[in-house]
Design a protein around this nucleic acid. Structure first.
Lengths: 149, 149
DNA sequence: GTACCTGCAAATTTTTTGCGCGACA
DNA sequence: TGTCGCGCAAAAAATTTGCAGGTAC
């Protein structure tokens, strides 16, 4: 088990061009042990139990490394600060995972998704919005020019 | 024009149970003058040109007031810290706009949305995810018990 | 008149950075 | 062995809070 997980983490790192370190392995294991969507602080607390000397800065750096390499995703694109959506009518967003810019899409640009499965018990849906994730033109260009980025 | 906008802002406030103040009106006007998704700091800078004495704290408080009353929306749920999505397979989210908890949905819970319109020029779509916004069971309960919250 | 709003300053929280030592490739 | 990662401490950025005076209703 342990060995298998470790082996797959090595592979993951290889696939994403990352060095394998003890800290990264433990952070990754810890992440996978959460059921929800942990914050850096929560990850830190859990990792600490295995590596008491680890620093929060390392957790931050590692999470960014993981996200940039594509090994993990952020829950929603994080701008480091609150952003206001001024649109009066609902609309959708196309967000660039690299530079984090957000483009608005007309609501009519998407045929609405349809709920065919279960929603959490008692959840009262008020709005449904779709996000496209990908690369904007500029980032796509610089990425194809420089694929290992 | 000016008068119309001011009048509609008064109405908006009435509808949402908010007192009408000069600061709130200017902040609202400023918000509507942005094309993108402004941060509190950006709003502050723009509002400052009209009310040099305004404080950043007021902008923060006002934005929260607007969001809580439903007069505005946040671009995406802001947790005050980075959140990691550990899911290996893509999936969707149901987020509670009140308590901000996030529930994962199976990808199969939604019939995928279909792109029928235009995406920003050159945008390379890599992933499409759907978010349901609404109230979770607990928040829905406390809201119906206490509708003006 | 009362309850709510504002501005100020300080405190908190979240995130980033620089640097010297040590570990991976 | 050289490069990259780690821990530490300090700095920067983002957000919240308490309070005293002022304003909307």
């Amino acid at each position: 088990m342990q060995a298998t997980a470790a082996a797959s983490f090595r592979d993951l790192c290889r696939q994403h061009g990352l060095a394998v370190t003890h800290q990264r392995a433990v952070i990754y294991e810890s992440l996978m042990s959460f059921s929800g969507h942990p914050s850096p602080e929560e990850v830190f607390e859990r990792v600490r139990k295995h590596i008491p000397s680890i620093s929060l800065a390392t957790v931050y750096k590692t999470l960014h490394t993981f996200i940039e390499s594509g090994l993990l995703r952020e829950l929603s694109v994080h701008h480091g600060s609150l952003r206001i959506d001024t649109g009066r009518h609902p609309h959708h967003h196309a967000v660039c995972t690299q530079c984090k810019s957000v483009f608005d899409l007309e609501e009519s640009a998407l045929q609405p998704a349809k709920l065919v499965g279960k929603v959490p018990k008692g959840f009262r849906v008020e709005r449904m919005s779709v996000e496209l994730h990908g690369l904007c033109r500029d980032c796509a260009k610089s990425k194809s020019r420089n694929p290992i980025q």
